[in-house]
Computed example of a mutant assay.
Amino acid sequence: MTSHTARTALAEEIARVVREVPGVAFLRPRLTGLLKPAVVPGPTGSGSATTAGVRLREDEAAGTWHVEVRLVALSGDRVLDVARAARRAVEERLGALLPGCAARAHVTVTVTGRV
């Protein structure tokens, strides 16, 4: 089981990596992110943490991570290309940070808008 602090640090690192992807305007928080502070821990022992537009969930039984990224793309870039680049960046960063878990990570990138 990963500690809350470690999950939060991982979510912050993923958010940083996604913000650096060309074509990403910003990360899009969920409604709860707009109503609560930027970091919202899940229920104790749930294995989830949310920071801005990144949500992490660790499935301890299966030994996998579920990473959900919600972002807004720049209007001059193809949305599909931005989403693919963001997903690839997250997968590569997970591979560097969690070598044993990266292959079993499920990364979803949703583009919620364009500016």
Rank of each mutant, 00 (worst) to 15 (best):
A102P: 14
T112I: 02
P22R: 08
R84Q: 09
L74Y: 00
E92F: 00
A102Y: 15
L35W: 13
P99H: 15
L98R: 14
P37V: 11
A11E: 03
V109L: 13
P99W: 13
V24H: 06
T44A: 14
A73E: 06
R19N: 08
E12W: 02
P37I: 05
A11M: 02
L34Q: 07
V109Q: 14
P43N: 05
V18R: 08
A89D: 03
T8S: 08
A89S: 13
V17Q: 01
V18Q: 13
V40W: 06
R104C: 01
T2C: 03
A103H: 01
A73K: 06
V67L: 07
T108N: 15
E60T: 14
V39N: 04
G45A: 07
V79T: 07
T108C: 15
F26Q: 08
P43D: 06
R19E: 00
V54Y: 08
P22T: 02
P99V: 14
D59W: 03
A96Y: 04
R104F: 03
L35I: 15
A62L: 12
P99Y: 13
A86H: 07
W65H: 09
E68D: 12
S48R: 04
R93H: 10
T64D: 12
E60K: 04
P41G: 06
G95N: 10
R70C: 10
V17C: 05
V40G: 05
G95I: 09
F26A: 04
R104V: 03
A62R: 09
L27A: 08
V82I: 07
G33V: 14
T44M: 05
T51A: 06
D77A: 06
E68C: 04
A103V: 02
R78A: 05
T50P: 01
L97N: 13
A15P: 01
T8V: 13
L27G: 03
W65D: 08
E20D: 10
R7Q: 11
T5L: 11
V79K: 12
V107Y: 11
R104S: 05
R104T: 07
A89N: 06
P99I: 10
A49Y: 02
T44K: 12
V109I: 15
A96K: 05
A11H: 01
G100I: 03
E91D: 13
A103D: 13
T5N: 04
R84C: 08
E60L: 12
E12Y: 08
T2F: 02
G33L: 00
T110W: 06
E92D: 09
V107P: 14
D77P: 05
R57C: 10
D59Q: 05
R16L: 03
R7K: 08
V21I: 06
D77G: 05
A62Q: 14
C101V: 15
A11S: 05
R7D: 12
I14V: 08
R78H: 05
G100M: 10
G63E: 06
T50I: 09
E12D: 03
A6G: 07
A9E: 13
P22V: 04
V79F: 10
L34W: 12
A89C: 02
R70S: 10
M1A: 15
E58W: 02
E13K: 00
T64G: 11
